[in-house]
Nucleic acid binder design. Structure first.
Lengths: 137, 137
DNA sequence: GGCGGGCTACTCGGATAGTGTGTGTCCGAGTTATGGCGG
DNA sequence: CCGCCATAACTCGGACACACACTATCCGAGTAGCCCGCC
C-alpha cells in the first residue's frame, strides 16, 4: 500500500514543466534527464497524463510536452488520479452492502486526504520552488 | 495503490470482537465464518494484530482471540498500521533531499487522513453498529 | 473419590505456491522540422 | 530564388519480460482444557 513510482515521476515532471517560463514544449529526453529515468518509461507516464488532459503532446522534431492549462488549475489530486486511477483506496465491503460502517469511515478518511490534495496546485509549489531557489543565491 | 484485503479482514474482525459482550475469547473458526475467509489465512492476520498489541491470543482448547485493551482506545489507524505497516505512502524523493516540496505536500495529505483515522475508534463504530441493528428491529 | 495420562481442539510459525500489479525495455509506426538538391 | 524530397528527431502505442508484494494454503509444533481410567 503506497504510491507507485510512476506517481512520483509524474509529479516531478509536472513540477518541472510548471517552473518553465512561457510554458514551452519540452522533450522527453530533457524531462528524463532530471530524474534519472529512462525516457521510454517516462513517455508511458506522460501518455497517461495526456489522456487525462493535463499535458499536451507534440509529435515530430522539436516535439515534446507542455501543460495543457494554467498551472494554478492543476491540483495534486489531478495528477495522482491520472496515474493511480480514481478507484477508492478501500474496497471489499460489497458483501456487507453499502451501509458498511467500516467502509464509511475509510471513505471519509480518504476524502480528507483528497480535499487537501485538491487544494494544492502544481503552480503553488512551483512558485515555492522558485522562492527557495532565490533564497539560496 | 489500495489497501490490502488483509486490512479489510482485520477491520471487520476487530469490529466483530468489539461488538461482543464482556470481551470474550473468540476462536478463529467463528471469526472466519462471518467473513467467508479461510481460518488459516485469518490467523496470519491475527498474528500481526497480536504482535502489534491490539489483541491477545489464547492457545489450547477453547482458545482464540480477544481485544487486549478497551475498544475505545483502539483507533482505525492502529489497526491499519498493524497490517500495512507504518511506512509512508509516498517515498522516493531521496535524491531531492528532505527539502523536496512535493514530498512535503504528500506527507501533509497523508497526515490529514491519519488524523481522522486516529480519531475514529473501533468502539465508536461498534456502538453505531448496535444502534442500527436496534433500529432494524 | 482423587489423581494422572492421553486425547482433542486450538493457536503459532514457517515453508511454499499462485497471482496480480507495478516497473522497465524494445520495437515498429506515424509525425514534423530541417537541410539539401534540382528546377 | 523557390519548391520538392529525403532524412533525422521525436512521440505514440502495443508487446513483452521481470520483480515484488499480496493472497492463500498446508503442515508440524506447541499448548491448554477435558475426559476416562486407574489407584
Amino acid at each position: 500500500m503506497n504510491y507507485s513510482k510512476g506517481t512520483n515521476y509524474a509529479l516531478h515532471t509536472m513540477l518541472y514543466l510548471a517552473t518553465q517560463k512561457d510554458n514551452p514544449v519540452v522533450g522527453v529526453q530533457e524531462l528524463a534527464k532530471h530524474q534519472l529515468v529512462s525516457p521510454t518509461y517516462l513517455s508511458k507516464i506522460l501518455t497517461k497524463l495526456t489522456k487525462y488532459g493535463l499535458v499536451e503532446s507534440y509529435s515530430g522534431a522539436q516535439g515534446g510536452y507542455r501543460l495543457s492549462r494554467d498551472k494554478y488549475e492543476i491540483s495534486f489530486l489531478n495528477i495522482i488520479q491520472a496515474i493511480e486511477g480514481n478507484t477508492p483506496l478501500f474496497k471489499g465491503c460489497d458483501s456487507n452492502g453499502p451501509g458498511c460502517l467500516i467502509e464509511a469511515v475509510m471513505k471519509e478518511s480518504e476524502k480528507k486526504m483528497e480535499e487537501y490534495l485538491q487544494l494544492r496546485t502544481i503552480g503553488d509549489v512551483a512558485d515555492q520552488h522558485e522562492q527557495t531557489k532565490l533564497e539560496d543565491e
